[in-house]
Design a protein around this nucleic acid. Sequence first.
DNA 1: AAAGCATGCTAAAACGTTTTAGTTGACGCT
DNA 2: AGCGTCAACTAAAACGTTTTAGCATGCTTT
Lengths: 345, 345
Amino acid sequence: MKVSSLDVARAAGVSPATVSLVLNGRTNVSLATTTRQRVQEAADRLGYRPNQLARNLLRGCTGTLGLVLPSLASSFVAQVAEGFQHEAGHTDCRVLLAHTRNDPAFEAGQIELLLRHRVDGIVIVTGEATLPTLGDRLAVLDRCRVPCVVVDDQTHAAQVDCVVSDDRHGAELAVQHLIAGGHRRIAHLCAGKTTSSARDRLAGFRNALRSAGLPCPAERIAGSSYIGARNREALARLLKLPSRPTAIFAANDRHLAEGLPLLAELGLRVPADVALVGYANYDFSAYLGLTSVDQDPVAMGRIAMRRLVERIASPNLEPKLIQTPVKLVVRNSCGISSPHQISPP
Amino acid sequence: MKVSSLDVARAAGVSPATVSLVLNGRTNVSLATTTRQRVQEAADRLGYRPNQLARNLLRGCTGTLGLVLPSLASSFVAQVAEGFQHEAGHTDCRVLLAHTRNDPAFEAGQIELLLRHRVDGIVIVTGEATLPTLGDRLAVLDRCRVPCVVVDDQTHAAQVDCVVSDDRHGAELAVQHLIAGGHRRIAHLCAGKTTSSARDRLAGFRNALRSAGLPCPAERIAGSSYIGARNREALARLLKLPSRPTAIFAANDRHLAEGLPLLAELGLRVPADVALVGYANYDFSAYLGLTSVDQDPVAMGRIAMRRLVERIASPNLEPKLIQTPVKLVVRNSCGISSPHQISPP
DNA sequence: AAAGCATGCTAAAACGTTTTAGTTGACGCT
DNA sequence: AGCGTCAACTAAAACGTTTTAGCATGCTTT
């Protein structure tokens, strides 16, 4: 625990400088293996572990990256973190975690902490609650020249690298699929208008309808970003429209999963009475047989990480918007294959 | 970025020592507010951020804790991490993340890295793949006096603090519930015998049956820890027994969720033909209407964190086994309420 | 007016490395 | 023998803090 390079030096009868040279494999030292061996042996025997604090203090950089996120309880966020951390392992970087608690002030404090710890760069996985103040955070990071990549929102794409899934295209895929299945009255259970993802999915929805020459009345769009009661009301509103939609494209699978009891109450069968396509492809989406747009959050984390090290290496790169590919995973909730979990009661 | 206490000192016309005293709120300095203000103002104007590396190097401790885990893709693990990190925020600790990649050698290397970074303590969320070598890891940590808490396995409870859910009791609750529902032929879809959780759930299963005077033939126990084909075969074996069990208690909800298509194939309705109770209470368990034992992983993370700081404060505490409470969440898969998601085809 | 005593500040050491510029001594060359 | 060269190693500075001991200064005491 408390064995330093000086201890090793003494034990091997050399200077700390030599210890450093040997242990870092500098070539200009003692190819006459005797010293090399003596140092190595002493280090092993004493259980010497170089102190990274001292090392980094001197180097001026830490090989540590900050990962700022709202909460690991969200599986999307956790998967992004997984990808990020996994890639960090390949690049020999450490990851310092920081929570947002969905509180702008707390987030600011956490980022301040990361900066004090001299992280080489930061990835921010945005949450809706702290999105409005994201600009302030970016300004701080910019001022102290700490590279940054934002994941899951592209509002600030002009100033900072952003990694988002190709939401617009994903939504188009989903809606095109429904249209191909013969649906004409398609509604959108949206996720509010705060996040760029929600807006882009809405845009994709509209675009797909327009391209197919289908109408897109305002009453067929409802929903908010919050899971729970408000969301169920929105779904109810859509399902009780005078001319009921035959299909619903939701901005989030979770909204649909929570809506299933409501469908049952209304006596609506999936996909016979109403077809469903969601977004995010959670693990439960497979269990429920929900057709969904997959956005591969693990890859998003990996890509964010790669971009961050790129930018650390060359800080003057132009900000880049990275849209990661999506794919439609077809299951039985839209009437293609035979349902088993989701079925008429 | 590169403004040091010396810069602030110069700007305020004082020494670095004074800067330190002022910024750390030492009382014995300059109640004559003039100096204090000058320093504070200079620090703000220059955007001074104390370098934690230097600070920690001197202090000898870092306020940073290592969190070792197999993968954040597992929602259990992610939730433990969430609880851990959340509590860390309260205690003013940072969390340094380390992956295992389910590879003992990689895990060893990651822990080595954490030690070089002089973390004050480590929490290890075990995974099955690295469980066999966990003892070696603990030995290393013990040798260099770094406090450690293990989450999700109690094999080494004699040497180290362990936080596990009360698996045995959870299993008993589940099985008692089935017995109370009139079931007599109850099978167990287990999760192998490697992890202590799996063994304890099995023990609880057996115990509940024995207490009720019910038989527990070996053929009614099957399953492995791996999700996928092998697990579906085990479920098939149970369901095709000459006298088919009327209820299944699974060591993991995921095993049941993956088994649903098989049930449909066999024409078995839930809960009419076979009742189900699982373990872990994932978010999808609610969507599927699965009765399940909830183990509150977030609390487990919180508790592990609290225990870790306790041990850091007093390193000589006796190792403690902490079993966190569980509760049975009753839904419709065991025949209590009317099913909506899970229903006859 | 001298001694004592707070008060307000600073000099310098310390933490554990890495790196730069040297220093030593052996050896080969003319 | 004198010179240069090279190999092998080391001394010391540097990174940015905190802390300890101590130094002025001015204010009470007697």
